[in-house]
């Protein structure tokens, strides 16, 4: 199990409404089908989005993982505030005070 399979679940759920319905009805059965580990199942139950970010699920899919957990965008952002750097993002991200409301960067002024 890895970020690939988690991402695949998200990708598949976008194309298969039945899969999303199945997730809503019985997430454990879907996680079984996709081979989630016990740790990952627990992270889903605990709505631990930070776990999946640090696992390496692509950031473009993180919001959708949050949706599957029932989290909105604001909740996802708050939950990621203390996340470790994403393992697959080698470029610089200017970590800083966005979480405190400073959304506009003006390095020169």
């Amino acid at each position: 199990m890895s970020h690939v399979e988690v991402g695949q679940l998200v990708f598949d759920s976008r194309h298969d409404p039945g899969l999303e319905e199945a997730w809503r009805a019985d997430p454990d059965a879907v996680m079984e089908r996709y081979g989630f580990t016990d740790e990952e199942r627990e992270a889903i139950r605990a709505k631990n989005i930070q776990f999946f970010y640090e696992l390496g699920v692509n950031p473009y899919l993180i919001g959708r993982v949050g949706q599957l957990m029932g989290l909105g965008q604001t909740e996802v952002r708050a939950a990621l505030a203390d996340a470790a750097p994403h393992p697959l993002l080698p470029t610089v991200w200017f970590p800083g005070p966005a979480r405190n409301g400073d959304y506009l960067i003006r390095q020169n002024g």
Binding site: Y60, Q73, W93, F94, A98, R99, Y103, L104, Q107
Partner: peptide
């Protein structure tokens, strides 16, 4: 823009 990261919502105006 920052997508699905802790900096989501941030905008680098200078950039």
């Amino acid at each position: 823009h920052w997508v699905g990261t802790p900096e989501m919502g941030r905008i680098n105006v200078d950039f």
